[in-house]
Simulated assay, not measured.
Amino acid sequence: MIDEQTEKRRGSFWRELPILLGVAILVAVLVRAFVLQTFYIPSPSMEHTLNVLDRVLVNKLVYDFRDPRRGEIIVFKAPSDWQSGAEGEDFIKRIIGEPGDHIICCDSQERLTINGKSLDEPYIYKDADGNQDPAADRKFDITVPANRLWVMGDHRSASGDSLEHYEETGDVEEATIPEDSVVGRAFTVFWPVKRATWLSVPKGFDDIPDAK
């Protein structure tokens, strides 16, 4: 026989359940809005670091405490004249240059130089035959404006990025993105499971000196 105390506990649980569900939903909404968000990869512009339909987790809070850094993969709200094709409004690229950085293409080994130091980029896309995209498909010499970032896709020949827009406009302001357009840092691939990995900053960026 079910005693009166048990009935009260059951009744209390069912009365509290909607409140618990509401709190859980509110927490999930707040986390998505301010802390973490998932994004899927719609285009080949970051292959093979990120493949089409990979899903990444983005830390939306990190840049509230520090500035974006070279080598990090970021999601950002693309300028209106960048928005075309599969990527929509949210773009994902790698930061190559911070404000004040002097970037040149290229050195004698066809590598980008940043503030006078050559950058090794082993993550740049290679096709099935092992042929790697060039670091850039034309020579350039730019200095990243204040409060802006120079971003590029790892699949250079398939990326609408700072280089493409600089080639189109010749205007480094138009070719860079404002720092305040950055949504957050992509820090891990979590799906598909077989591709799960941390998105750490490549070691080549460790040797790049600060802008003078």
Results as ranks from 00 to 15, higher is better:
M1K: 03
M1W: 02
K8Q: 11
R9A: 08
F13R: 11
P18D: 10
L20T: 10
L21T: 06
L21V: 10
G22M: 12
V23I: 14
A24L: 14
L30H: 06
A33I: 08
V35G: 10
F39R: 06
F39Y: 15
I41V: 15
P42A: 05
P42L: 05
N51Q: 13
V56H: 08
V58L: 03
N59C: 08
N59A: 08
D64Q: 14
F65H: 14
R69W: 00
R70H: 06
G71C: 13
E72G: 01
F76S: 06
K77V: 13
P79A: 10
S80G: 11
S80F: 10
E87N: 13
G88H: 04
D90F: 00
D90H: 06
D90A: 05
F91R: 00
F91Y: 13
I92D: 00
I92F: 08
R94V: 06
I95F: 03
I96M: 08
G97A: 09
D101R: 08
H102S: 04
H102P: 01
I104N: 03
C105G: 05
C105E: 11
C106A: 06
D107M: 08
S108F: 02
E110G: 14
R111K: 12
L112G: 04
T113W: 01
N115R: 14
N115L: 12
E121H: 14
P122F: 06
Y123C: 05
I124H: 00
Y125I: 04
K126W: 12
K126T: 11
D129P: 11
G130H: 05
Q132M: 15
D133I: 03
A136G: 08
A136F: 07
A136L: 09
D137E: 14
K139N: 14
D141G: 06
D141P: 02
I142D: 01
I142K: 02
I142P: 02
T143A: 09
V144M: 07
V144N: 01
P145M: 10
R148N: 07
H155E: 06
R156E: 03
S157K: 05
L163Q: 14
E164K: 07
H165S: 07
T169M: 10
T169N: 04
D171R: 02
T176R: 07
V183A: 04
G184H: 06
R185E: 15
T188G: 04
K194I: 03
L199R: 01
L199K: 02
G204D: 12
F205L: 12
I208H: 10
P209A: 09
P209V: 08
D210Y: 15
D210L: 15
K212T: 01
